[in-house]
């Protein structure tokens, strides 16, 4: 999926998925990041939704194709098909929903089972941090879990736009770094071959 573009409006094209339990605020995180909008009227996501955003990271233009997935367990087998080819994952829980925090382990297992987890970059996000009166998960618990799995961690608020851009930029930087490493590990002819293969594979795979 990752591709270095020639004479296009971006340098890299990458795929990111946003996952986590139902109702943790995935769609609002994405709306805030892509459209600077927050809405209390967002309906549940059925299946998947899609958004696109191009950002500048270290002087490079990175075009993010972001897939927002349904959180309900019943949609899991449908959304899993979108894991394939993802280079970045925003794994979200809600700080006012303890169960969503406890389910992070399950989501991580799901990433391991359905992606080439060595090449996938993750960010753990504890959303709804503005709702302090209803908080059920402390920041320390979030940090501890992220250290346990060695994943960067942000507490965010889609409502007040706290740490939303930071989370995506952190993810984007590490994706670029991984892509550059992969590029450096290959010699030039191999690199060309790999990129061509990548493009053809994307067409054949169709969805993701």
């Amino acid at each position: 999926m990752s591709r270095q573009a020639n004479s296009q409006d971006y340098d890299w094209l990458v795929k990111v998925i946003v996952i986590g339990d139902s109702g943790v605020g995935k769609t609002n995180i994405l709306s805030q990041f892509c459209d600077a909008k927050f809405s209390i009227t967002h309906m549940a996501t059925l299946g998947v939704d899609f958004k696109i955003k191009t950002i500048d990271v270290d002087g490079k233009k990175l075009k993010l194709q972001i897939w927002d997935t349904a959180g309900q367990e019943r949609f899991r087998n449908i959304t899993k098909t979108y894991y394939k080819g993802a280079q970045g994952v925003i794994l979200t829980y809600s700080v006012i929903d303890r169960q969503s925090f406890q389910n992070v382990d399950g989501w991580l297992r799901s990433i391991q089972e359905n992606t080439n987890s060595n090449d996938v970059q993750l960010v753990l996000v504890g959303n709804k941090a503005d709702m302090s009166a209803e908080r059920q998960v402390t920041m320390e618990e979030g940090q501890k879990l992220s250290q346990q799995y060695n994943i960067p961690f942000f507490e965010t608020s889609a409502k007040s736009n706290m740490n939303i851009n930071e989370s995506f930029h952190n993810l984007a930087q590490r994706i670029i770094s991984t892509l550059c490493k992969m590029q450096a590990n290959d010699d030039a002819p191999k690199l060309n071959l790999k990129q061509t293969e990548g493009k053809e594979k994307t067409k054949a795979d169709g969805c993701c």
């Binding site: 059925l46 299946g47 067409k203 169709g206 969805c207």
Partner: peptide
């Protein structure tokens, strides 16, 4: 190209 037209799910 669209092998999985998942927009029809809802």
């Amino acid at each position: 190209i669209i092998e999985h037209p998942t927009c029809v799910i809802p």
